[in-house]
Structure formats: structure tokens, C-alpha cells
Design a protein around this nucleic acid. Structure first.
Lengths: 141, 141
DNA sequence: TTATAATTAGGAATGATTCCTAATAAATAG
DNA sequence: CTATTTATTAGGAATCATTCCTAATTATAA
């Protein structure tokens, strides 16, 4: 793999993502970076997201209809809102339960010529906004 | 929702999917159905996959780069191969572990104004072919 | 058989993501 | 500091999965 350079764009992208707790799409990151600095093309955003993910600096999440990215690589899980499709953080899934699932899967896999080495856990439900019974009052009014 | 009719195409699609244990993409289903009967457009495949999934007759899975479909709606989980991207069946994840994960997530969510009502569990690893150390011998030779 | 509306073919449109190329700019050597 | 090398960028074209549109078809019920 080619050596990596510290380009202005890559640094800005990483900083932006690290500073957010939502899980933005490439488009959303592009828009945000566009607003705060000059050069930053969409292609560059995509390419650098790929580079950073490959280096393990960020996480690439499979969203409902497009990829989402997470600057927090510490172990945690996500709640995907069935209504609006957003993703929110949840604390890390309990290790015991997780381990037990993976162990069972790994054992079965081994018996069948496969290998299971990871689990991905995604909770589904409703985010704060969509769980609220009535439309939120407009706090900006 | 509009009443649903038993069109030839929808029946063929469901039969094809029920008869497979891989988790085909829309394209793959389209190709298979094309080969065995006359009329079956790609748009029709997509639309009917949507209808059947909405009716709970089939499952829609988020594959690595495109959707995959499963004619088996009985509880089970999947292994997504990191090498070739295919999805294979695994037995249902242990109920106890699953329940424990969901309970913990639901409790946290409730305290924070969210609702967690489901878990999606996906194992990652290698399928039978890709786990094999050397290239498989060509059984057709 | 007939009327009604769900369904189809298939091609256009959309949207996310990748790819391509000349110009630019980190990193390094001298 | 300057020159050289090559990773990186802009941004527009290309790709690919998926959705949408419309006139023609067909399942269904009366």
C-alpha cells in the first residue's frame, strides 16, 4: 500500500468527523466542509473516507440506504431509527452476551467449514425525535 | 394498502426464492426467472420483492453493496463473507444472549427518550469456499 | 362477459459511489 | 532553499443499484 500524506483535505475531514456524534453521510460531510473551507470536492471526501476506514481511523457503517461514517472507533453499538433512518449511539453491547453469540456461531461455522470471527449488532427502533408522540415544539420560534 | 392479486410473475418470484438457500440479489433472481419463463422484467422483480417483503413473506437483507433476499422467514442469522461478500445461513442466534442484548439496549434507550425494539445480528467471517486454504479443485474438470 | 383496478414491460430517471485525468502539493534528497 | 517524485486534488464523466413512469395487460369480482 502506498505511503500516506497529510493532506489538508484529509486532516479537515478527520477533524470534522471526530467532532460529530451523529453519523454523517459522505454528502453531509461534504456540505459541512464546503461551508467552512474552500477546496473539498465530493470525490475527495469519498476517497479519504475510504482511506481512513482502511486505516482503522474511522468506522464505515451500512445505513439503511447509504453509507454512514463514525469518527468514534471505541466499541459501541447503534440504534437505527425505523422512521427517519438516522443512527444514534448506544453503549457497547454487553460483552458476555456478545461473546456467547459469537462463540456459538464460531463453533457451528467451524463444524461446517466456515469461519465466524466477528459479530455486528444493530438495534432498530425509534430515535428521540421520532419516538416523541407529538411533533416537537419548535424551539427556534 | 391496495388489495393484492396473484400475478403469475409474483408467484414465480416467490417460488424461485423459496427454492433457494443462497441469498440472491434482485439481478440474480431476474436472471434465473428470465431463463425459465418468458415475461419478467427487472422492474417487476424489484417491485414484487418490495411487496413480498412488506407482507412478511420474504426477508430483505442489507448486503455489503446491494440488497439480498431470503425466502426463509424462520428465525436464523447470517454469516457475511469478508472475502467474496456472499451470505450464508447460520442457526438462529441463541435466544438468551439476544434477549439480554435487547433488554439492555431497550433500557438505555428508554432512559434517553428512544425506543429499541429489535436487534439485528450479523456474523462476519469466511464462507466455506473462501475459508479453504488452497483454491478448490475443479470438480467439473 | 364486463368493468375495475392491480400489475406488467421496459425504458427513463435518480442517487450514491467510483473512476479518470490533468493540475497541485506533500515529502524527501541534494 | 530548490528540485524531484509521486500522493493527492478537483470536478466531471461513468457506473450501478434501485425507483419511477406510462401505456398495455390481466386478475378479480359482479
Amino acid at each position: 500500500m502506498a505511503p500516506t500524506r497529510r493532506s489538508r483535505q484529509r486532516n479537515l475531514l478527520l477533524r470534522e468527523l471526530r467532532g460529530r456524534t451523529d453519523h454523517p453521510t459522505a454528502e453531509s460531510l461534504h456540505a459541512a466542509l464546503r461551508a467552512q473551507s474552500e477546496g473539498m470536492s465530493l470525490g475527495t471526501v469519498y476517497r479519504n473516507l475510504g482511506v481512513l476506514a482502511a486505516q482503522g481511523e474511522i468506522l464505515e457503517l451500512a445505513g439503511e440506504d447509504c453509507k454512514r461514517f463514525d469518527g468514534n472507533t471505541a466499541p459501541h453499538t447503534h440504534l437505527c431509527c425505523e422512521i427517519c433512518g438516522c443512527m444514534e449511539d448506544l453503549p457497547a453491547a454487553e460483552d458476555a452476551a456478545k461473546r456467547s453469540l459469537l462463540e456459538a456461531a464460531a463453533a457451528y461455522a467451524a463444524q461446517n467449514g466456515m469461519e465466524a470471527d466477528g459479530v455486528r449488532i444493530l438495534f432498530t427502533g425509534k430515535c428521540k425525535n421520532c419516538a416523541a408522540p407529538a411533533p416537537q415544539t419548535d424551539e427556534t420560534a
